[in-house]
C-alpha cells in the first residue's frame, strides 16, 4: 500500500491533503455556531463607528494595539474585565492583534475621552511623555468613507442577519435599537454625530470641516474608540 502511494503522485497528494485538512475539520468547524452568539449588551456598530473601524484598519492600529484582555489580575487591573467570546460577535474581522507595543484598547472607551484622543493622535509624545507612537496628523484632514461603512453595515445585515433595527437586550434589563436606514439618511445621521464629537475635540479646524458636510477620519476613529467598552 505504501509503495503504491509513493509512486502515484495523485493519491499521494490526496493523502497529504487529508492529513493536513484533518486538524481544521476537527478544530474549527464544529465550534462555529457556539462562538458567534453575542453576550447581553453587545450591539452592532453604527455607520460612523464602522467608518472609524475602517480607519483603525487602514492605518493598522492593530499592528501595535491588542483588543483582547486575558484573564489575569495584572491585565484586568490595567484594562478592565477580561474579554468574553460573545463580545466580539459583530467584529468582522476580529482585531485582537498579536503584539502590544502600545496598551490594549478593548475597553478604551471607558477611560479615555474625545479630547484626550484628539490631542494624543495629533502628537502622542506631548500627551504621554516618552510615547513612541507615530503622529497621525493626516487623519485630521483625510475624509472618512461613510459610503463604504454603510455598505458594510448593509451587507452584514443582509447576509449575516446582524440585528440592526431590532431591540437588543442590555445589561440593565432595558433594550436599545441600532438603526440602519438608507444611505442618505445614514449620512445625515453620521454627520450629526460627527458634529458632536468635533465640538468635544475642541478644535476649530475639525468643526469647520464637519460643517462643510465632510467627516475627517479622526472623528470617525474617535467615535469607534469611544464605542469600545
Amino acid at each position: 500500500m505504501f509503495s503504491w502511494l509513493e509512486k502515484n503522485p495523485f493519491f499521494f497528494a490526496v493523502g497529504v491533503f487529508l492529513v493536513i485538512a484533518f486538524a481544521g475539520l476537527v478544530e474549527i468547524l464544529p465550534n462555529f455556531a457556539q462562538a458567534s452568539r453575542p453576550v447581553v449588551g453587545t450591539k452592532p456598530y453604527t455607520v460612523l463607528e464602522l467608518a472609524g473601524r475602517h480607519v483603525y484598519i487602514k492605518d493598522s492600529c492593530n499592528a501595535c494595539h491588542s483588543q483582547l484582555i486575558r484573564p489575569f489580575k495584572a491585565e484586568t487591573d490595567r484594562y478592565g474585565s477580561y474579554s468574553l467570546s460573545g463580545e466580539y460577535a459583530y467584529d468582522r474581522p476580529f482585531l485582537w492583534g498579536s503584539k502590544r507595543t502600545g496598551p490594549d484598547l478593548m475597553r478604551v472607551g471607558n477611560y479615555r475621552t474625545t479630547d484626550w484622543h484628539a490631542n494624543h493622535m495629533w502628537e502622542p509624545a506631548k500627551t504621554v511623555a516618552g510615547s513612541i507612537m507615530p503622529a497621525y496628523k493626516h487623519m485630521y484632514t483625510n475624509v472618512a468613507d461613510i459610503d463604504t461603512a454603510w455598505a458594510e453595515a448593509e451587507t452584514v445585515r443582509k447576509v449575516f442577519n446582524v440585528p440592526y433595527n431590532t431591540e437588543i437586550p442590555l445589561q440593565d434589563g432595558t433594550t436599545a435599537v441600532v438603526e440602519l436606514k438608507d444611505l442618505a439618511a445614514e449620512k445625515t445621521k453620521a454627520l450629526e454625530e460627527a458634529a458632536v464629537i468635533a465640538k468635544d475635540m475642541k478644535r476649530k479646524d475639525i468643526e469647520a470641516i464637519v460643517s462643510e458636510g465632510k467627516i475627517p477620519e479622526i472623528v470617525a476613529l474617535i467615535a469607534y474608540l469611544n464605542s469600545l467598552k
Binding site: 468582522r92 474581522p93 458594510e152 451587507t155
Partner: peptide, 19 residues
C-alpha cells in the same frame, strides 16, 4: 450586496472568535 461604497471592499465571512 449593497450597491454602495468602494468596489474593492469586503467583509469577513467569520466574526470575532471564529475569525
Amino acid at each position: 450586496v449593497s450597491g454602495a461604497g468602494a468596489w474593492y471592499h469586503s467583509v469577513s465571512m467569520y466574526a470575532g472568535t471564529n475569525d
